[in-house]
Amino acid sequence: MSNVTPAPDELVHYEVAEGVATITLDSPHNRNALSQQLIVELFAHLEAADGDADVRVVVLQATGRVFCSGADLSEAASGGMEEGAKVLVEMQRQIVSLRKPVVTRLQGAVRAGGIGLVAASDIVVAADEASFALTEVKLGLTPAVISLTVLPRLTSRAAALTFLTGEAFTAAQAVDMGLVTRAVPADELDAAVAGVVASLVTGSPQGLRETKRLLATDLLERITARGDEMATLSATLFASDEAREAMLAFLSRKKS
Rank of each mutant, 00 (worst) to 15 (best):
M91V: 11
I146T: 10
V40M: 14
A216E: 00
S78N: 12
S204T: 14
S78V: 05
A231M: 00
E245Q: 12
Q37H: 09
D72Y: 14
T155K: 06
E167W: 10
T181R: 03
K86E: 11
V124F: 05
E47K: 08
I146Y: 04
V16K: 08
L42G: 02
D218G: 06
R65K: 12
S2F: 12
A249T: 07
G113V: 04
I146A: 04
M81K: 14
L141A: 06
V124C: 06
I123H: 08
T202G: 08
V55A: 01
V103S: 07
F67Q: 03
T217W: 01
D190K: 12
L189M: 12
Q173W: 07
L161T: 15
L251K: 14
A231T: 00
E129S: 12
P101L: 08
V145W: 00
V66T: 14
A133D: 11
G207P: 15
V125C: 02
R213I: 01
V180E: 09
T162I: 09
A239M: 01
L134A: 10
V89W: 05
G203D: 05
T236D: 06
L220W: 05
Q61A: 12
R56P: 03
E229N: 02
A130G: 05
V40R: 07
A159E: 02
A246N: 10
I146R: 04
D190G: 15
